[in-house]
Amino acid sequence: MPLVDTAPSPPAHRGGSGPATAAPPPKAPLRTRLWAARWSYLYILPLLALLLTFVVYPIFGSLVYTFYRWNGIGEPSDFVGLDNFRQIAHDSIFWDSVAHTFVYAIVVVPVQLVIALALALVLNNKKLRFSAFYRTLFFLPVVTSPAVVGVVVQLMLSNFGDTFNSWLLDAHIIDTPVDWLGNPRIAMGIIILVGIWQTLGYNLVYFLAGLQTIPEEINEAARIDGAGPVRTFLHITVPMLRSVGLMIVILAFIGSFQVFDLVQVLTNGGPYFGTEVVNTYIYHLAFGGNQAAATQPDVGLASAASFFYGLLLIGFSVLQVLIFRSIAKRRAAGRG
């Protein structure tokens, strides 16, 4: 329960669990405590070294670019202060792309979680034969690369687009053929469908893992008490899954807010920015216009957009955590 562990709950084994901690009393001088934990520091060193060098430093390194007008060549020299941020904040296409990203997340996350949970409940049934086989089936799309998915979906659409159209026309559902990716709403729908298809597997296994941690005896006990499946689900499964569920929701939102590859390969943000999400918006700034008109990349503006969006997301995440916490508190209060 990683993410939850970062919340105020106390660390796993304060004092005296691992060999290294050799339990120096909490008031021991800092040097003693540091020396006692020397192996802990050594073990964490590779992670920190990699993280600081290749993740944290580059993020702050690119923060510098946000204050320059710079095309990515040589070193930045044209200092513009906060102009880039101002320009982003005033760009209606940026805000549209934020809206599209939120639409994507707000549709994908709940739909996917409901399907994943339902599937997990079915597959977790010990009496169901071949459940490992089914699990494999539904997880498989996760291993595909977006580039290949993009090619395959485009080929399928261009091959089936006409077929579907003639079915729909014959059934009098539509009266003119649909241009699947040419209609921003339908295009977004297709991106959402493919997004659900490709990432459902992760959430399925997270839920399965969560369900496995519920001891069978508890369900058994509930059944003996005469609780029906619905009540068992609501009063046992849901509360027991709450912490893992929280992690899944947070991860699903983090992933959805960073959606990029699928949009890039399926619509490239088009038509007329109708499916532009924040990451394609940033990409188009950083790597220069579109293919019809090669334009100068604007790395400064792209970095500014990226940081601005990062701030929005952090704000949103804090809000999300606060909401979950207040719900949890209210529940606890209600129960107590």
């Binding site: 993410l3 562990d5 970062t6 660390p11 796993a12 084994h13 304060r14 004092g15 669990s17 691992g18 290294a20 901690t21 800092l30 405590r33 540091l34 006692a36 934990a37 802990s40 520091y41 964490i44 992670l47 920190l48 993280l51 993740v55 944290v56 580059p58 993020i59 390194g61 690119s62 923060l63 670019y65 990515g72 983090i254 940033i282 950083a286 790395v299 792209a302 970095s303 990226s306 940081f307 969006y309 990062g310 701030l311 997301l313 952090i314 995440s317």
Partner: peptide, 25 residues
């Protein structure tokens, strides 16, 4: 499994990187 000064700071740091924007790095 171990307790050491700075443990919480490390956890905080790596949690934050999960949310930080990965811009033009």
């Amino acid at each position: 499994r171990t307790e050491f000064p700075g443990r919480k700071a490390v956890i905080g740091l790596i949690s934050v990187t999960l949310f930080l924007p990965h811009g033009y790095t």
